[in-house]
Write a protein that binds this DNA or RNA. Structure first.
Length: 909
DNA sequence: CTCTCCCGCCACCCG
DNA sequence: CGGGTGGCGGGAGAG
């Protein structure tokens, strides 16, 4: 039957040779999630291109019809409109608001997009083939169906930090339906989440959502296990071997300590709340185990970069499988699956390590590194911690301040933002995933724990903040001084939003400027445009570089930055650059050496200073934070900082220092952070342009957010800084954003994970005005209290993608709109703002926001989970895929349509 | 070509 | 036995 159907389809739609039920496919829905514009997105549905599973098609039930509509276009007869379709239409009609938003924002709304798309598709159908064709053109790519995207959608449904009181139960069937995917895919996601204890199985088909509260603890545990297993050593060995030999030899590598059986070592997934079904039944959950092991590798890695081949080899060894190539391939596939989920969680980002053999796919840990504080929730920013931060290698800034930010950043928001950006960035064609250059993550600046800022030349602030200052590259400081005023604590944990601003010593600033200039920018004016007046202002002060210590989310950003350094000068940075950096970090000594060699030439060319900046990836700053993720105890102690675990992912720049990095085998590594591309060229022109383009209108004073775009070369790292608290600013997607031209650097500390630094070298004049107000005294909170105060950083896709700047620019524009939207309102709390996609975020952000302002920690509540869910559930998505098995069960899902209706309301608000 | 990784067959396992 | 799980790897999209 199916076959026949296919045939028919094909006939009907030549282009879709495969069948397109795609529309129906949940996957499409995923695609939808992607930022692609609706217009673009629309295609998804109809187009479908993918081979859809016949099975799915079979499955089609009325519920899925949503999809059908698309087909309708093609071959309506095949699937008559279903009530669902009609419903969708009605809904859409009913909720113009939503549409508008979407249109405006476009970006948000993953699932909804589907609907929209769907609707559109329907309309299109009506319209005619031409429309369809367009869709096809736009049709979502495979990437849109990616597990990572799906995972984001999944995560969007639940609050990152649910209230303890709230228990969220996840119905796999329901989720599968709502996300429009087969349940099998949900298993993949859930298994990974379970490995991190974000969820636990409650019963058949039922999982309990725990959120990220315990993530720090889990990570800490994993880190400990990893250490026990001596993964670090194993990795080092493997890396070297690889260098030597391509093929894998397993066996030898294992080291002493690590016996293969790591399975045992794995954490227990079960959770208190939900009695886990104890799942360990079966095979074990290899995916779960693999996931934990994979995470362990990052946690024990100094560089925080793990290449897939190394990870696969280690896993194979442990499993004692015969190291055949097929095994290896399979492991790698699984690792990708895991990596996609982890990426969605903002724990890792993709990077490439350049080795002799060539580039190797790898992932860099961008999640929290410091688990010293054992638990999740509280973030303690003890002053003591701060000292830890140290600069390392190249001159990078040292952070004196440290805090344990929360390990919990507002990931959701991050995720959401990521989605958004992706959407924005991603064009149908462009890969939105991590790879995509343009795509980026958006982070909430709010998460930043502290901001350091300094005016160039102006010491006053520096003095004030003396304790906390950023050191110039060469110098290292340890500031033990806690942020003045900062009481991060619990609030942070809950919401990373609380930001503190620290002024940077003038000297430092100068250094920066120098660097920047050196870096190639020709000199960036370091001025940062920030609106001082507002909470944010501080950060934005013009002329002052700002350093933020962000929360985990920031980390993510940072990570991304690192990754994708854009070419300084031009947009183009060769791909190599970034890679190199990574390589340095991650790669074994030998490799690093090579890298170093490679760079040498560059170095020669560039002045030392320049180099540094470059090294940093062009980032004006490089931060070095060393932190070790050692045991909790260690954590407490500030000192150890740099050593152990911390690896400067960003070492990249450091040419000379690379050697240190080598240490891979050894524990100590010199971490360097690099900023990415921003540094040089990017900053001005590139970055600004995009912004300007979109938001030429930006109002300096008014600007609430500083929007920094990554240079073309970058992966599209964009930073939004909320200059002002005004919520509205956030809200308006497009124009409002005051994407200042201000370039912001976000520096994550590899080791510290928690302390990414955000730096904005220069600010546009206008912008600056507003911001100026920062109280020099101390840390300032960026975020506004509830609103959009939170700044968002948009980071390009994790992967390095591109050298080509071109993409970025284009992306930017889109981003702006969406970003703005997402940023403020969504995140903040204003739920209303949030779109379907954002809903989740909204929840988080909300909490976060609160935190910022009020000392009281805000708990992220899932204020709206329910709603969210509804949001996400799109009827359309339902359709497809799922079904097979589920058909039976699934009747429940149908309700989604109604839910959708709700969505608008919520969103609208 | 390589890198990704979607997709879904089909084996486990549990009730 | 049926159904939930999820290992596994073919094969194709993307670069």
């Amino acid at each position: 039957m199916e076959v026949n159907c296919l045939t028919l389809h094909d006939l009907i739609n030549p282009r879709q040779s495969r069948l397109d039920f795609a529309i129906e496919d949940g996957e499409n829905a995923q695609k939808e999630n992607i930022f692609v514009d609706r217009s673009r997105m629309a295609p998804k549905t109809p187009i479908k291109n993918e081979p859809i599973d016949l099975s799915k098609q079979k499955i089609f039930t009325p519920e899925r019809n949503p999809i059908t509509p698309v087909k309708l276009v093609d071959r309506q007869q095949a699937e008559p409109w279903t009530p669902t379709a009609n419903l969708k239409i009605l809904i859409s009609a009913a909720s113009p608001d939503i549409r508008d938003r979407e249109k405006k924002k476009g970006l948000f709304r993953p699932i909804e997009n589907k609907d929209d798309v769907f609707t559109d598709s329907l309309q299109l159908d009506v319209l005619g083939d031409s429309a369809v064709d367009e869709f096809e053109k736009q049709r979502p790519s495979r990437k849109q169906k990616s597990l990572g995207l799906l995972c984001q959608k999944f995560l969007a449904r639940y609050p990152s930090y649910p209230l303890s009181t709230e228990k969220t139960t996840i119905s796999l069937d329901e989720v599968a339906v709502s996300l429009g995917v087969e349940r099998r895919r949900i298993y993949d996601i859930v298994n990974v989440l379970e490995s991190l204890r974000l969820v636990s199985r409650v019963a058949k088909n039922q999982y309990g959502w725990h959120g990220r509260h315990s993530l720090p603890r889990t990570l800490r545990d994993l880190q400990r296990l990893g250490e026990e297993q001596k993964y670090e050593e194993q990795m080092a060995h493997l890396q070297q071997k690889e260098l030597d030999l391509m093929d894998y030899k397993f066996g030898e590598q294992k080291k002493d300590g690590c016996p293969d059986s790591q399975d045992h070592q794995l954490l227990d997934f079960s959770e208190p709340d939900y009695p886990s079904s104890s799942a360990n039944s079966r095979k074990d959950k290899s995916l779960r185990i693999m996931s934990q092991k994979f995470v362990m590798l990052f946690l024990v890695s100094k560089t925080k970069i793990v290449t897939l081949d190394v990870a696969a080899k280690i896993l194979i060894e442990e499993s004692q499988d015969t190291p055949d190539h097929s095994k290896f391939k399979t492991k790698v596939r699984r690792l990708y699956d895991i990596a996609n989920v982890l990426t969605s969680l903002a724990l890792i980002k993709k990077v490439h390590v350049t080795e002799e053999r060539g580039r190797k796919p790898a992932f860099k840990w961008i999640g929290p590194v410091d688990f010293s504080s054992s638990d999740e929730e509280l973030v303690d920013v003890s002053a003591s911690v701060l000292p830890e931060l140290k600069r390392e290698t190249y001159g990078h800034i040292q952070f004196c301040a440290k805090q344990k930010l929360a390990r919990h950043g507002s990931f959701n928001s991050v995720q959401a933002s990521e989605k958004i950006q992706r959407k924005v960035n991603s064009e149908p064609s462009s890969p939105y995933r991590e790879k995509q250059g343009p795509g980026g993550y958006s982070l909430e600046i709010g998460s930043l724990a502290a901001v350091y800022r300094q005016k160039i030349g102006d010491k006053s602030q520096g003095e004030a903040l003396a304790s906390q200052r950023v050191m110039p590259p060469s110098s290292c400081l340890d500031t033990s001084a806690p942020f003045p005023g900062l009481s991060v604590d619990s609030a942070y944990r809950v919401n990373p939003l609380g930001h503190q601003v620290v002024s940077v010593a003038p000297m430092d600033m100068q250094a920066f400027s120098a660097q920047n200039g050196v870096s190639g920018q020709g000199g960036l004016p370091l001025a940062s445009a920030a609106s001082d007046a507002e909470s944010l202002k501080p950060a934005l002060l013009a002329g002052q570089p700002l350093v933020y210590v962000p929360s985990p989310s920031l980390f993510m950003l940072c990570g991304s930055l690192q990754e994708g350094p854009s070419p300084g000068p031009g947009a183009e940075r060769d791909s190599r650059g970034p890679e190199v950096t990574v390589a340095e970090q991650s790669t074994p000594p030998s490799v690093q050496k090579r890298l170093g060699e490679e760079r040498k030439p560059q170095e020669e060319e560039e002045p030392a200073t320049k180099r540094q900046s470059r090294d940093c990836e062009d980032g004006p700053f490089s931060l070095v934070m060393s932190k070790k993720p050692s045991d909790s105890t260690d954590v407490a102690a500030p000192k150890a900082v740099g050593n152990r675990g911390s690896a400067p992912h960003e070492d990249i720049h450091v040419d000379g220092q690379l050697p240190a990095a080598k240490e891979v085998s050894g524990k100590a590594t010199a971490p360097c952070l690099i900023s990415s591309e921003w540094g040089n060229t990017s900053r001005n022109t590139e970055i600004e342009k995009p912004v300007k383009e979109n938001e030429s209108a930006k109002e300096p004073s008014l600007l609430q957010y500083l929007y920094v775009q990554s240079p073309a070369g970058l992966n599209g790292f964009n930073v939004l800084l909320p200059g002002t608290q005004t919520p509205h600013a956030v809200g308006p997607p497009s124009g409002q954003l005051p994407p200042l031209g201000v370039p912001c650097m976000v520096l994550p500390s590899p080791t510290l994970g928690p302390f990414p630094v955000l730096y904005s070298p220069t600010m546009p004049g206008p912008v600056s005005s507003a911001p100026s107000a920062l109280p020099s005294t101390g840390p300032v909170n960026f975020g506004l209290p509830g609103l959009g105060s939170t700044a968002h950083l948009l980071i390009g896709p994790p992967t390095m993608v591109n050298p080509k700047s071109s993409a970025l620019p284009s992306a930017d524009p889109q981003l702006h709109g969406p970003c703005s939207l997402n940023l403020s309102p969504v995140m903040s709390r204003s739920h209303s703002v949030i779109q379907p996609e954002s809903p989740v975020y909204g929840g988080h952000s909300v909490s976060v926001v609160k935190l910022q302002q009020s000392p009281v920690p805000v708990t992220p509540k899932s204020t709206r989970r329910t709603h969210r869910e509804t949001f996400f559930k799109t009827p359309g998505s339902l359709g497809d895929p799922v079904l097979r098995r589920r058909e039976r069960n699934q009747s429940r899902n149908t309700s989604s349509a109604q839910r959708r209706l709700e969505i608008p309301s919520s969103g609208a608000d």
